[in-house]
Amino acid sequence: MTVFIIRRLMQAILVVFLMSVIVFFGVNVIGDPVHMLVSPDADQADIEATIRRLGLDRPIWEQYLLFVSGAAQGNLGNSFIFGEPALKLILHHMPATLELAFSALFLAVAVGVPLGLYAGLYPDSPLSKGIMAGSILGFSLPTFWVGLMLIMLFAVELGWLPSTGRGDTGHILGIETSLATRDGLSHVLLPAMNLALLKISLAIRLTRAGVREAMGQDYVKYARAKGLSTRRIVFVHVLKNIMIPVVTVMGLEFGSLIGFSVVTESIFAWPGMGKLLIDAILQLDRPVVVAYLMIIVLFFVLINLIVDILYSILDPRVRLRDQGA
């Protein structure tokens, strides 16, 4: 188990290293670093000072080392708009995004898995066919469009739920979150639903396919031959087997939820780091953009790592294979 984790950890470090090279080249070689990192209304002296400070007159590999050591110290430049360190700004907006993404993930599993289970157990029932048609639609509809429709229906027409902002926040375990208050929950519902839609469809499909495959397996027939109740077969034997792919994929999708939250946050004016990114792009606040990119890369690598480890805990065969290799 330890060997497994160490090996995965080394791979993760390699990926972060590679991505830092790519982001560095993206910003400093393809783009114009002076243009990217200096405020547009800076004068000539400012620009020269920055060039010297960033070491842009030095060889490229030295520049890269400077960039990495700066990043490691949490120094990715100051935001032009807010005058604060970009990294600090991003981290400050991160909880709101995580809150939204977790809510969406919860919705996706809580709604998608039961629906998928039903559709898998009774594939011919009209309800199952309805569920599957809905999931196809969920895959095809662009997220932002669904967001607009949700706002139009629930906020404008029905007036049931608020359409913008985060609402009142409270504290759970010392973390400031909208999930702690009624008002906050009502604010989180629409954006979380919007963000979750694609993942609900995914969870439905995965669960349904898993159930249908598992129900035909010998171990299910064997479990029936042992006289187990249908409930135990479905909820222990089948569910535990299909939760492996479902958890893996849904876990991997957590990263994409963070990514897609850019869209949802913009529509619902949710004060997370996605909205911060879009605002930064629109206002040419480049240090914030660079900081966001680095954070998101780190995030993805971390998620992949966690999912790998989770996977190995859930599926004992993975551990064995890795030890054998």
Partner: peptide, 19 residues
Amino acid sequence: DLQLSFPAALVALMLVAIL
């Protein structure tokens, strides 16, 4: 594989952020 571990939407967004 590395690229596919990032959602396409995010890759595109990162690129337009730079480009």
